[in-house]
C-alpha cells in the first residue's frame, strides 16, 4: 500500500517556450501550480551547454533535512540523485540506458544492411 507523504521533492518546470528549466523543490503534496513551494533545493538544466554538460545543483544539507522530515522523492528527482551518487541508481535509469543501447544496436544493424546493399548494388 502506498503511503502518501506530506512533503514531496519534485522538479517544477520553469523557463520559457522551447527552453525548459527545472527547479528541484520541496512542496506540499497537494499544491496547485499557482501556490508557492516550501523551499527550493536546487535546479536542473535539461539542455546541454556549450561544453555538452547538463548542470544540476543540489542543496544536500537541506535535502537531508527534508528527507528526515519524511519527504518523498519524485521519480525524475530520484533518477538525478541516483546519478549523482547520493542515492543508489534508480532502476529507471538502468532501463533507459538498456533501451537506448538497444536502439543504438538496431540503428547500427540497419546502417550496416544499407551499406551492404549499396555495395552489392554497386
Amino acid at each position: 500500500m502506498y503511503v502518501y507523504a506530506m512533503y514531496l521533492e519534485i522538479m517544477i518546470l520553469t523557463g520559457c517556450t522551447n527552453r525548459p528549466f527545472y527547479h528541484i523543490s520541496v512542496t506540499h503534496r497537494r499544491r496547485l501550480n499557482s501556490q508557492p513551494v516550501i523551499e527550493q533545493l536546487g535546479s536542473y538544466d535539461p539542455m546541454p551547454n556549450i561544453n555538452n554538460e547538463k548542470l544540476v545543483a543540489l542543496n544536500l544539507e537541506r535535502l537531508k533535512y527534508w528527507l528526515g522530515q519524511g519527504a518523498h522523492v519524485s521519480n525524475p528527482v530520484g533518477e538525478l540523485l541516483g546519478l549523482s551518487g547520493f542515492f543508489p541508481i534508480h532502476p529507471r535509469s538502468y532501463m533507459a540506458a538498456w533501451r537506448n543501447r538497444r536502439i543504438e544496436r538496431e540503428n547500427m544493424a540497419k546502417q550496416l544492411e544499407l551499406a551492404e546493399k549499396s555495395e552489392t548494388a554497386a
Partner: peptide, 23 residues
Amino acid sequence: VLSQDPALVGYDTAKYLFTDITF
C-alpha cells in the same frame, strides 16, 4: 573516480555536473 557503472552506458550523450550548493 568515485564509482563505475558500466550499466549506465547510453543513458545520455551529455555529461551531468552535480554541485552541492549547501550554505
